[in-house]
Design a protein around this nucleic acid. Structure first.
Lengths: 208, 208
DNA sequence: AATTTACCGAACCGTACGGTACGGTTCTGT
DNA sequence: ACAGAACCGTACCGTACGGTTCGGTAAATT
């Protein structure tokens, strides 16, 4: 038996992980027209295996989302001593990474998928929300609190501060991409936008 | 022949307008599971008429979006003399209205629909973008420029100023709603958020 | 070697839905 | 009053796709 990786309550063999990667790339190409037959053909596996592994189509889609989410988890920033420059630099790095992810093909495809199947029937929307906006909040808030602890930031409600950071960084980028606008963000664009967002955030929440 | 209303290159009879309203309400209920048979049954018309009037399913969806967009157009604000209080009040009103629309069932349903069918094949995404984000920009920018003309605001790039306003007002509300989160915004919530967004915007772009 | 397990490929089934055809009915204009 | 257009309701067709079944194959297990 090949190496298995735990994911939620399931464990995935290497083969199944490969299939999920292939299915994800296919999803990026064809969007919601992703079909079980198509996945099977591209992954050179049988539909029977897909149903055996993932239950049904919704199970496959959920597995794709969770598998991608598991890959994205990154290291949390520790609440170390914060200089003003270090805080600014961390925030810029954060904004940069986030913008990069949000504007990537994979993020757009997964968010489209989850939005399409949003509703009480499927939990895809919840999953994407938890692994997207929520997870980012969990990683940013310690940084904000460290900044406040060092006397560099001032805010009473960390959730509200985070949501403002969200707005300043993402602006209208995500909705425009989701609606299909051909918006190309060069590396320098992203760097500039991230810097400006942090600058504005510090203007609003910075001390002195 | 009943009264006809021009819409794009088409003109719609009163009956067709009724059908579009009914189709829209059905869309809000069932989302992307909207079916031609369902529309025909709810609207008490024949499928044949639907196809005669709107061509195909995509034509019906496009007509729904355009019909709603035509109803939403509101009066532009004139570039009158601006006091600081008047500008602030106008911006707050603007933010309030916008948040209200974005968080409404109809906006969520139409944006979901357009995102689902985004891509080079259908222009639904473009239509929603043009009548949503773009139209709002066209209405807000004169207000911003009037504020700048009165020496109350400072910015070099009005597009950038608008996008910042967008981020501060909408924050994560739209994406959370699109992903199916059961987010209830009371009237007082919206008022408070709109005020805070304008306050922050003025902090960033206000003079003195 | 025999048996079990896991898988592939392909054929197959059921159904939902987009789109069309057609007979009957109401509306409209002369 | 009458003709014709517009429309309703429904039956029907074709297809795409989710899901199932089955025969064949190769590797692992006993």
């Amino acid at each position: 038996m090949a190496q298995a990786v735990r994911l939620g309550d399931e464990e995935l063999t290497a083969r199944q992980q490969d299939v999920l990667d292939i299915a994800l790339s296919l999803l990026v190409e064809v969007g919601d027209k992703l079909t079980m037959t198509g996945v099977a053909r591209r992954a050179r596996c049988s539909k029977e295996s897909l149903y055996k592994w993932f239950g049904d189509r919704d199970g496959l889609l959920t597995a794709i989302v969770q598998w991608q989410a598991a890959k994205v988890r990154s290291v949390p920033v520790g609440p170390q001593r914060m200089s003003r420059e270090a805080l600014q630099s961390h925030l810029e790095q954060f904004a940069f990474d986030w913008l990069k992810v949000i504007s990537g093909d994979i993020s757009v495809a997964l968010n489209r998928l989850a939005i399409t199947h949003a509703g009480p029937l499927s939990n895809l929307g919840t999953t994407v929300l938890m692994n997207g906006r929520f997870a980012v909040g969990q990683r940013l808030k310690p940084l904000l609190k460290a900044g406040r602890g060092a006397g560099l930031l001032h805010f009473s409600d960390e959730e509200e501060a985070f949501r403002t950071f969200f707005g300043l960084v993402i602006k209208d980028v995500q909705i425009r991409l989701l609606l299909g606008e051909d918006l190309v963000l060069s590396e320098t664009d992203v760097v500039r936008d991230a810097k400006r967002a942090v600058e504005q955030f510090v203007t609003l929440y910075g001390v002195r």
